[in-house]
């Protein structure tokens, strides 16, 4: 196995294109576990951390849109330490900050979490709910795609030969908007989500929800975007939250495994939907106040 640390995106593309059995290394918190256990035996490791921009969090304001760009090698701990990003996207950051331990936080990245293509990645649902765009660089140039276009099936992505993700873009939101992510795990830390749920919503001046999106993790082969119209037009009162919960439970298509049962995951999808929506709503109200 070779270890390579390209200095530019083009060099990285060339290395990845030249060796289809190469793997990208950013935080390494999944890659190294798989390497050690013998689940993968790549012929090369391409460490993208030394490429300019990969470790940056920047606020963009371009004709294509304004928002936050997070480099592919930004650790989740660095996201949590970025006051501006935390204020703008508390739900995205809290999802990212739930991955693993303090130690894992120091290394793991949202992009790695996404490209792992596991159904339960904690940072993915909030990215989906936020309408984030993923920037992919490859031999044929750069493209921006919706989050859910990256994972195809558990462990499998849509990235083609020579392609890798360079950043995540979170579009700017109005002031009276916010998001939240909740997951259910058996312990208080260190577990993979049994169910994850993100809600992103926008309020009008009266506190009525004008737009909402929701996504669920760990209840299907990949993260699911779920219709959140049940709370649009409401003030997140109990009846509309119950309707949102019912929509989440209905949309969940989980499996029975060592982490949970179908019935449990469906029930808890609804519970988390309600609770996450309440938190997002409170945050959005606070933001607009």
């Amino acid at each position: 196995m070779k270890f390579q640390s390209p200095q530019t995106v083009d060099d990285a593309i060339a290395m990845l294109a030249a060796d289809t059995n190469a793997r990208v290394l950013a935080g390494g918190t999944d890659l190294l576990v798989r390497l050690r256990s013998g689940h993968i035996s790549p012929s090369a490791i391409v460490d993208i951390k030394h490429i300019s921009g990969m470790r940056d969090i920047t606020q963009e304001d371009t004709p294509e849109g304004s928002g936050w760009r997070i480099g592919a090698a930004v650790s989740c701990a660095e996201m949590g330490e970025h006051a501006g990003l935390v204020a703008a996207y508390p739900g995205v950051v809290e999802g990212a900050e739930l991955i693993g331990s303090t130690q894992v936080q120091g290394r793991c990245t949202m992009v790695g979490n996404l490209c792992n293509a596991g159904p339960a990645g904690d940072s993915v649902p909030a990215m989906v709910a936020a309408g984030a765009l993923i920037r992919v660089a490859g031999p044929n140039g750069t493209r921006d795609v919706p989050v859910l276009d990256i994972p195809v099936a558990p462990g499998k992505t849509s990235l083609t030969e020579g392609e890798f993700v360079t950043s995540v873009f979170l579009p700017a939101r109005p002031d009276n908007a916010s998001d939240a992510y909740l997951r259910f795990i058996p312990r208080t830390e260190m577990d993979i989500a049994v169910v994850g749920c993100a809600v992103n919503l926008t309020l009008d001046a009266q506190g009525t929800v004008t737009a909402a999106s929701m996504s669920l993790g760990a209840v299907g082969p990949k993260v699911k975007q779920v219709d959140a119209s049940a709370i649009v037009g409401s003030t997140c009162d109990d009846a509309s939250l119950d309707a949102l919960a019912a929509a989440a439970t209905e949309a969940a298509t989980p499996i029975d495994d060592k982490r949970g049962t179908i019935a449990f995951r469906k029930d808890v999808s609804g519970v988390l939907a309600k609770r996450a929506a309440k938190i997002a709503y409170t945050r959005a109200k606070g933001a607009s106040a």
Partner: peptide, 12 residues
């Protein structure tokens, strides 16, 4: 593994 064989952690 210690991921899914869940022994108590400090925050529990």
């Amino acid at each position: 593994g210690f991921l899914d064989y869940r022994i108590p952690v400090a925050s529990d």
